[in-house]
Design a protein around this nucleic acid. Structure first.
Length: 170
DNA sequence: AGTTCGGACCGTT
DNA sequence: AACGGTCCGAACT
């Protein structure tokens, strides 16, 4: 079997009041963020962490903390979203423009990237978002302010939106 | 009012 | 070829 992880990826834990997240870094920046309990490849063994990545990680920790508190982070680490398709990257960068407290519908996002009918595909791209919370896929709701879905536990989507002061429907 | 059903739509595996 | 974090209108309750 071949390992599913990028050979060049470094994983670092982030302890929060919500549990332990895990950040994955490539040589380009933060490449993935796992929710607590999402056991991915636990490499466990000691890693040599380049100074560059330590700096990025500090930024990630601070950004995650303020995001979990419902505030927009002042600064983000560099994000490595190169793993996504062209379409996914367009969606993800559209997500990054949604401020805390604001929301868009899946169809509004589709419109913003110039593919008004690719509504379901936008849902798929949101689900494929490797960096939840920081790339705010939770700020995308279904039509008419309904909650819609979420790949990981819906409790996260609810919690994050509530902390940002967003209203939604059952 | 609310709910369910069926089709249309599009990128990904 | 089949599946989704969808959407809309129609036909129900």
């Amino acid at each position: 079997m071949k390992a599913k992880t990028d050979s060049s990826s470094i994983e670092l834990p982030i302890e929060t009041t919500e549990g332990t997240f895990v950040a994955h870094y490539s040589d380009r920046g933060l490449a993935a963020l796992d929710f607590p309990g999402a056991n991915r490849s636990r490499s466990g063994r000691p890693q040599i962490v380049p100074p560059k990545i330590r700096l990025w990680h500090d930024a990630t920790v601070r950004a995650l903390e303020s995001a979990l508190a419902g505030k927009s982070p002042h600064a983000l680490p560099p994000l490595d979203l190169s793993r996504g398709t062209e379409f996914q990257q367009e969606v993800w960068s559209a997500l990054c423009k949604i401020a805390a407290g604001e929301t868009l519908s899946y169809s509004e996002v589709a419109g913003k990237i110039g593919r008004p009918n690719a509504v379901r595909a936008v849902g798929g791209a949101c689900g494929a978002n490797p960096i939840p919370v920081l790339v705010p896929c939770h700020r995308v709701l279904a039509a008419h302010h309904r909650l819609g879905g979420f790949s990981s536990d819906m409790k996260w989507k609810r919690a994050l939106l509530t902390r940002e002061g967003v209203q939604f429907r059952a």
